[in-house]
Amino acid sequence: MSIKITLTVNGVKHTNKVEPRMLLVHYLRDVLKLTGTHVGCDTSGCGACTIHVNGKATKSCTMLAVQADKAKIITIEGMATHHELHPLQEAFNQCHGLQCGFCTPGMIMTAADFLTRNKKPNEKEIREALEGNLCRCTGYENIVKSIQYAADKMSAPKARKTKKEATV
């Protein structure tokens, strides 16, 4: 049996026929060739495969591609806009939030979902938000700092000049 699915990934509409047993992460990586989403444990534990499905952080190794029919999906490849890094991407770069980088796409996707719900998080809240994501390198300190950096940057008044300032 194969089933036709239509979904939007990073703003682009895709229609494909897939076997029901195809995992969403394999659809993204093998069919759409979006290999930024990683498979770490393949047992729902590590969060390396985290993406957004209709705005919600989701372990794509624990979802079937057919379940995502009609869904809006964002992967790490969809975070930068017009060649400008997302504040979280910039933060992980600035704060050395990664070593090997394997967990990073999942960390960023989980953090991005979290920061929409909590714009001014404290350290404890950030650590709790990461309960579904494992990193085997950094020891988390710099990951937490990165997320704090991004939260500060995202909630700071925009650096872009307002109309009023521009005319002064």
């Binding site: 729902s44 969060g47 985290t50 919600k56 952080a57 989701t58 372990k59 624990t62 979802m63 989980t110 979902d113 979290f114 938000a129 309960e131 579904g132 994501n133």
Partner: peptide, 9 residues
């Protein structure tokens, strides 16, 4: 329950 990703689904 579990973690945020698990609770979302």
């Amino acid at each position: 329950i579990g973690d945020v990703q698990v609770r979302n689904h």
